[in-house]
Design a binder for these strands. Sequence first.
DNA 1: CCGGATTGTGCCACTCAGTGGCATAAACCT
DNA 2: AGGTTTATGCCACTGAGTGGCACAATCCGG
Lengths: 221, 221
Amino acid sequence: MTPAAAPAAPSDLPLRERKKLRTRRDLVDTALRMFTERGFDGTTLDELCAAVEVSKRTFFRTFTSKEDVAMAPTQDLWQVFVERLTDRDPAGRPLAAELQDVLLEALAAMPDDGWAERTLLSRRLAASTPSMDAHGLHFCNRTSAGIVADLHRRLDLDPADPRPRLAIDLVVAAWHHALDSWTAQDGGHTRDALADRVRAAFAALPGALTFTAPARVAAAD
Amino acid sequence: MTPAAAPAAPSDLPLRERKKLRTRRDLVDTALRMFTERGFDGTTLDELCAAVEVSKRTFFRTFTSKEDVAMAPTQDLWQVFVERLTDRDPAGRPLAAELQDVLLEALAAMPDDGWAERTLLSRRLAASTPSMDAHGLHFCNRTSAGIVADLHRRLDLDPADPRPRLAIDLVVAAWHHALDSWTAQDGGHTRDALADRVRAAFAALPGALTFTAPARVAAAD
DNA sequence: CCGGATTGTGCCACTCAGTGGCATAAACCT
DNA sequence: AGGTTTATGCCACTGAGTGGCACAATCCGG
């Protein structure tokens, strides 16, 4: 429920909450490090909990699963995304463009202190760990379903109109492609570079539907 | 690896293979029934295996996970999809349109004998079981990644061009929306009705990118 | 600064998904 | 029929995830 990885409020929060946030942060950082060094399957929760000096019971009060802790960076981003979208009136201009703007805003709101590094580790792990990939996709699907439901409520759209949902799915597809290509690139894994990838992916969307592979000439090799 | 739920070859196959296929079919049918009646989490693998009179070890030689057995109908469809696509030359016309045709072909190739019913149960379960939803999305993502890689190989496309992948993701988004709305509709859960939903979702794709929610007039209620 | 109310944590035992190894039985092939 | 191949059953084991309860740390009113 709490933003967590955002170290936004180090003080002004009751001591208890700050401790919880610190524990959460420790768990995420240690998990990403251990999973990266020894593999996701090669690391048991008991080992992770021992390293952070926390009981397994506490781990499951903070995260819903072993996969969950390693997906924290992405979840933090989408949480901000949803918050920002709630503050807006998305009517009167193309929905997909609106969502693109909100996504870029949320991205810009991610903390400077290491969010990009954590995201990179998280994505690399997801690429090689089926259960993490599955967990991430489910989170994304659940979140976008919530967004669609919210939009229908706020804008009282025709429930039978498939376009709002398809619009979100288009945005999500572009986001995923941006994230994958950013993860795969050599170096320069900054937040701004990711934002550039997002813009490029969005720009490619209109042409994707009509994209036609050129017929090959006879002898090419 | 084997097509399985397709009862295409009842004979002409060695006895051993037929037995395996029968076991697989029994497992899928019984699993869908038990999961539907008692819930996914309310059914243990031991109970399922006892009902089919198969050892748990054998179950895991046929399916990779508890979720897997309940997703069999969808997987059978996409397996045919991939096979059909391999037999084609997708160059020279819009890729998305080509993929739409292949999807409708694969759909038409699904057996009459109850595929639609199994799919309906499977989707309803997935809608209420997070781990099944996650598993299904992961399968879908892995499959489409394979398709993209194959297309790049066969058509030697520019590896940096995001459009082929986005095109697939668009098709997948339309498919998912078609499947969800078909699942949610009242009655008439036939293969043909699903095909109609698929066509409708595809038709809505071009408008999704430019969809704009109408600005609300002041007093609506 | 101290009391009780509140809330987070540690420990323990438990269920159940998923895996590896090995013996056995069924189907295959002359 | 007889030897080979291949699937199945059984058993023990790891590790994720959960519920219950006692304990300790924080909070808050005096």
